[in-house]
């Protein structure tokens, strides 16, 4: 174990822990923009700089391993000045159109601008102008809002193993693009969208939908494959408008294209909304009330059971539905109807 002092507080961390991790353990708030504990340290945004005794210059806490006896300061006047300059520089090359930006309310840059009270900008100057047209149904890019934190590039490479995007150009014009600007080999998992700290990457599906105000967040479980990813549904009224996952979930916040973007079926106009009964073979469906439907089903099932025995009935329960529903379903067949003819499509 390693012992160090951060802002006059002692802390013990495991070998290999970074100064940032040690500080977070002490609940010391150090601003970051390019850091994500799920990815390798990167050290690009320079906001997490700290002063360490014996080191000539401030260093990034996200990349610096903690060592025994280290004395760290996280909040000096000098660090404040440097961080503020960094935020100011970022804003000097940012559209600052928060009113209409999809990222508002969920934007780290916005929070930093607020925290450092930046209204005037000393460094107003040229801004990048990346005009681009994206042809994909999932992800919207607004590259002028990119802060070059590299999270999207890293998550695509380190986590997804795809490497669909990388860096191009140098200096002020440096940017994130697919290889050669067009060869997009993307799986549309949207991991990049989930880590983007600004409105540079967003989901096309939630464009124009409510951002924060009036949005309800519901933690639940994904309904696609057997991975069991934790998801958070964002809804407004009875519309599901967006799906995210929390970084501290067992799936670490990562989702696939279906889990993240495949939710429109919920509010599909094709949804069945009323019971339907076809009273004669070959006849048409007729709308019915629930009482009618329940009684009709119960009656027909009972008739068959009475005439041919319980084993003339069968039920297919669902690998798509809840445990409780499946339990009640098989219980119905076993205890109320009296047959073990219950199965589901585990085999398909």
């Amino acid at each position: 174990m390693i012992n160090l002092t951060i802002d006059d507080k002692q802390i013990e961390v495991a070998e290999g822990a970074t100064v940032l991790e040690a500080a977070r353990k002490l609940n010391i708030d150090i601003p970051t923009l390019c850091h994500d504990p799920r990815l390798k340290p990167y050290g690009a945004c320079r906001l997490c700089i700290v002063e360490i005794g014996g080191m000539a210059k401030p260093v990034t806490s996200c990349t610096t391993p903690a060592t025994n006896g280290m004395v760290v300061k996280t909040n000096t006047a000098k660090l404040y000045r440097l961080r503020k300059t960094t935020v100011e520089l970022l804003l000097s090359d940012h559209p600052n159109d928060c009113m209409t930006c999809i990222g508002t309310g969920d934007c780290k840059l916005q929070e930093l601008a607020y925290a450092y009270g930046i209204r005037e900008n000393r460094f107003q100057g040229a801004m990048r102008d990346h005009n681009r047209v994206d042809v994909n149904p999932f992800i919207t890019r607004e590259q002028n809002k990119c802060v070059m934190c590299g999270l999207c590039v890293r998550v695509c490479e380190e986590v997804q193993g795809v490497g669909a995007i990388g860096y191009a150009e140098r200096g002020f014009e440096a940017k994130v693009i697919p290889p050669f600007g067009h060869d997009l080999k993307c799986e549309f998992c949207g991991q990049c969208v989930s880590v983007c700290p600004t409105g540079a990457l967003s989901g096309r599906l939630w464009s124009g939908k409510p951002r924060m105000a009036g949005v309800k967040f519901t933690d639940t479980t994904c309904t696609y494959c057997g991975c069991g990813c934790n998801i958070t549904l964002r809804s407004t009224g009875d519309q599901v408008i967006r799906i995210d996952s929390k970084p501290d979930s067992h799936n670490r916040g990562w989702l696939c294209v279906k889990g993240r973007f495949g939710f429109e079926f919920i509010n599909s106009a094709d949804r069945l909304t009323t019971p339907l009964i076809r009273r004669q073979k070959g006849g048409e469906f007729e709308q019915a009330t629930w009482d009618e439907a329940y009684d009709y089903v119960a009656k027909r099932l009972s008739e068959i059971k009475d005439k041919h025995g319980a084993d003339a009935l069968g039920g297919l329960c669902s690998a798509r539905c809840t445990n409780e529903e499946n339990y009640l379903f098989q219980k119905m067949f076993r205890a109320r109807i009296g047959t073990n003819n219950v199965d589901h499509c585990a085999r398909y």
Binding site: C225, G226, S318, A319, N323, N326, Q330, V342, H344, C345
Partner: peptide
């Protein structure tokens, strides 16, 4: 393959 194959089996389906 499906979100609750495990559960459907567990529940006696």
């Amino acid at each position: 393959g499906q979100n609750n194959v495990q559960g459907a089996c567990d529940m006696g389906g």
